[in-house]
Write a protein that binds this DNA or RNA. Structure first.
Lengths: 226, 226, 226, 226
DNA sequence: GTGGTCTAGACCACT
DNA sequence: GTGGTCTAGACCACA
């Protein structure tokens, strides 16, 4: 997100409690610490995080808008459930957004952008060799965010942020075995972007998402809780 | 939206303050009551709405997530700016989501769904004749939401909610003259959905969004406010 | 400082901007990034840290109380100068405080306390072998703080905090060659504490500080700037 | 304190608001106007002193560093509590610093220094006869500061400033009956300093502090306030 | 609703 | 003009 690598000041780095709560809450859902269908009361979350209920409330509004929880009036929040329909719907949308991103990226990518993408591929390759699968998952998200970044479309950027968290979620609670395979598709995608071939990039993105959807829907483990 | 038509209880009808604040806040931005670039302090909003600052804070997190305002750490909220790039980006994403919705709707629409869509078209026609343009704009959003509803994809539904508010915004602060024209495209779209022709529906949606984008980008009035 | 190793919550970990500015400011002085005698304007520091001037002002009051800067009325802050007298004065005071601490520690140390001290000695030994001198300096401060912690005297604790930052400063801008030697003295000190011998502990502390003072005064590099 | 006796300009006399707030705040704590354990909100202090909250905040940082209040993150300031342990710890440290000061003073005192000390003793004697106990307490602090001043150790000077305010605090909230007695010990101390006898001065200082500690710990009135 | 925290801006004294 | 000082106002978090 900050490709310049410049030194950040204290002021810019300082994050509000609300923000930290938001990230930790999202992480716990995505990582399955808070299971699907689990009831999340404000008090419980406030205790878990060692803060008062106010920052918790604001964080809950955001994860609700992102679709991670449902908030029932006067009944509190419940972690959303990833049933097959939800996953299918998610990937259908993802395909549309990602093909658009790939096409735009192919038109706009500079050499620097391509270098950045290739570097992510190399890092992922190294992490895969080292069997550091958490890092691989992280780099997967980073790669797709980078493509969207290159596309230059700010709406894609803001809409896809929540989407990739969900994609991550699907694979965390599902199967991780697809990791090695997907990176070959990533390489093809970067090649088409580097070639500036919009058509080919769009197709490469479509194939990648369709393969990912296939994997997600087959490999899924049903674990709705409570 | 509530096809059951059953009587709702008081408890179910009650909407949280936060929710009312959210809708009114969004309305004021979309209607231009709060101009682009305008600074929105929590205290001012709390006064405007006659509530305490807490529900205002939570509503602000949501409109931020929806892209209507930017929140600067320790500096407060500022209404987002609809420059040409933002509009272009918005319509590029809209095209992807709406073509997907149209294709899915063509596959899944029942006779009842088609009737519902046609009824909206008729209402809009009547409203146009009556020169009730606010109602027309409202029906425009309702129509597109209905198509997405028919598509049955819940992700589309949740992602597009914020999107249509933005589309609405673009036309409010831009030009409204496109209204009569767009309904002819809507009729064609419903015809293709009724015919169950996915391909044709996708194309009809694309043409519609492209025409809308064209209109939005040409008719746009520059009114960024300090 | 937190020997229990328990998980800290977000709320407890969150630090005010003022606090971060304070630590970074102190670090930059101790590390020589801000040289002795250098003028520190509030604006410059605010820019350096990317914050407004208010947290900077509050941090300046603290480093002034700690003796790192002098604040001239309506003239701003200047980094203090470590001349020979200052170093001599510092070590004279340190001797008094550290001999008291050692004596009290000998009287009160539990087995757990002794284990903690020995662990620090081992860590330092490892860091010395690894030639990680920054870590050695850090462990040096940690060791002395631990002794004072064991002494149970809260006044010693609060007064010595600033003092050890100064000691660190003296060695950073002076010579680092004393590191290996001092740890032998530390070992002797821990042995006397473990034996519960107040007299011997007091003596060991005195000898250690005197040797450190000797080293500091001989090895000192004169670098007052501006 | 200003032996030159020259006329001071207006500029030099002007003290920053922050400084005045600091001294008044410290005075009110030491005099018990703000009781132990009392909560001190910024707004309240700002009102009490008729200034804005900013100089109050800066003063609070200083009294915190001096140990008069504890500042809880995001919760505000509370006046510290003088329980028996705190007093005992304080006097243990005081003994170390004061014996050092006495020894150094014995080595370095000029005739002028000795005269200055004797004059303070006479003033105190007069004030005691006049039963002006506030003045006596003030002269007590002035005497000890003068000894440290004569010692020439600037670290002692800066560290002991806060310490004597605390000593003063202990006697204000405790018992004042020790005043007459302590001056005899002061006289002996000055005699040893005048004689240039480091050993004897150190001993005299130790006996004095031990007697003071004894008095403080016995005469203490328990008044921790909610 | 109260209170801590930070920012922006105005004042004013020394260059 | 530069820079320390203070005030006003607003965000953020707690109860």
């Amino acid at each position: 997100m900050d490709p310049t690598g410049e030194v950040r000041t204290i002021g810019a780095d300082h994050v509000a409690l609300r923000e930290q709560v938001l990230e930790e809450l999202r992480r716990r859902i995505v990582d399955g610490d808070y299971a699907q269908g689990e009831r999340l009361t404000e008090t419980r979350l406030a205790d878990d995080f060692g803060v008062s209920r106010n920052p918790v409330r604001e964080a809950l509004r955001v994860v609700e808008a992102e679709g991670f929880v449902h908030i029932l009036p006067r009944r509190g929040a419940v972690v959303a459930t990833l049933d097959e329909t939800a996953v299918r719907d998610l990937f259908a949308v993802r395909e549309q957004l990602e093909t658009l991103a790939a096409g735009l990226a192919a038109e706009r990518a500079t050499q620097k952008d391509v270098d950045r993408l290739r570097r992510l591929l190399e890092d992922a390759s190294a992490a895969t060799d080292a069997k550091d699968f958490d890092r691989v998952a992280e780099l997967n998200s980073a790669f797709h965010r980078a493509v969207i970044d290159v596309s230059g479309n700010r709406w894609l950027l803001s809409m896809s942020a929540a989407m990739y968290h969900h994609v991550h979620w699907v694979f965390r609670v599902g199967a991780a075995q697809r990791a090695p395979h997907s990176w070959e598709e990533h390489i093809r995608l970067v090649d088409t972007i580097a070639a500036g071939d919009r058509e080919a990039a769009t197709t490469a993105a479509r194939l990648h998402v369709e393969a990912a959807a296939q994997a997600a829907l087959n490999g899924r483990v049903q674990r709705p809780t409570a």
